[in-house]
Simulated scan of single mutants.
Amino acid sequence: MAVFTPVTNQQATDYLAQYALGDFVSLRGITAGIENTNFFLNTSQGEYVLTLFEVLNHEQLNFYIELMHTLASREVKVPMPQTRRDGTRIGTLNGKPAAIVDRLAGGYESDPGIQHCIIAGRTQAQAHLAARDFALYQPNLRGLPWWEETYPGIRPFLTDSQDRLFTASLEEQRQIQTGDDWKSMPAGACHCDLFRDNVLFDGTYDEPRMGGIIDFYFAGHDAWLFDVAVAVNDWCIERSTGALQPWLVQAWLQAYAQERPFTETEKKLWPIALRAAALRFWTSRLNDYFRPRPAQTLKPHDPTHFERILTLRVQQPVPPLP
């Protein structure tokens, strides 16, 4: 969410005229993140987020925007994409695809506790179920084929030990994800990037309320178990080491399973799904760190964080699915 593409107040005013959202009041860039350009947009009618998409094209965006619209329409807490006067929900601003969505209440919790994990785990399951008949299809663009395509570009930056870990993990995922068990697991449109900074909470720390899930622009069709693993690898860890915190893992998984029980195949593949999720984000962080795109405000994440997590998921047992 770095500011890759500047937008002036006048440009925002002109773009806003394509919507029935009131008059322009203010625009403020959001500096966190690394993929899209985001602004807080205030109008006389309310508060919104304006996004310019730096990588995704209009065709790809249709999946993400319509998925969010479907979830919001089915009362899952996600931002509602706003519809333009011409009936579409994606426009063009400064040569980039652009969209406006509701700005949700609350903020993200940097140190989530049990109640946060319960609420977020339950909402994740509700989102999976709400989108199970979603008609549009978009593969997870950061899935196994992308890891394979990206490896040659990041290989020169890896030490020998890092390369051994990466290639062994990649080969494991090739074998598992092309197998019948992985393909048989429940799957559908899912977030694929459900980190703690992509969930907003209202209320207090001890009594949080779900504000909503944001930033769906890595969403895609994948095994729901992979989506759960992505979340658990971020929410349910000791931050400095990456070690799983069993009480947080249990809180997340039990809350999820109350909405959608896990299958026996999912229980068997759970450790491998956690390794897949770790490899996915180690790959992307290596790529972002060593092969960055120019931006006005760019803060690439440290790739060693997910190297540590992947190493632990290979070496240590993980709490089982309920």
Rank of each mutant, 00 (worst) to 15 (best):
L200K: 06
K268Y: 14
V318A: 05
S26D: 13
D206M: 12
L269K: 14
F157H: 10
L41T: 11
W270E: 07
H69Q: 08
P300L: 07
G106Q: 02
L104M: 05
L136M: 13
Y289M: 01
M185T: 08
L286N: 07
E148F: 00
A131V: 15
W282D: 07
N287Y: 12
I119C: 00
L170M: 08
Y217E: 01
R280H: 03
L71D: 04
D227E: 08
L321M: 03
I237V: 10
P322Q: 01
W147I: 09
R164W: 14
K267D: 06
T241F: 08
Q11P: 11
R313D: 05
L16V: 10
R155W: 10
M68L: 12
F63Y: 10
W270S: 09
I100D: 00
T304K: 06
D86T: 09
Q162S: 05
Q175F: 07
A20L: 13
L21A: 07
Q315Y: 09
G153W: 05
T31W: 12
Q245I: 14
K77Y: 09
M1P: 09
S169A: 04
T43Y: 00
N62E: 10
V318E: 00
R28A: 13
L52V: 06
Q258R: 10
V25M: 07
V7D: 08
F306K: 00
R155S: 12
A72T: 11
V230K: 00
A278Y: 06
L136P: 15
A131H: 12
F226L: 14
L71T: 10
P156D: 01
F157D: 05
E148I: 02
P208W: 01
R85V: 15
T5R: 03
R291W: 08
A20T: 15
R285M: 02
A187F: 12
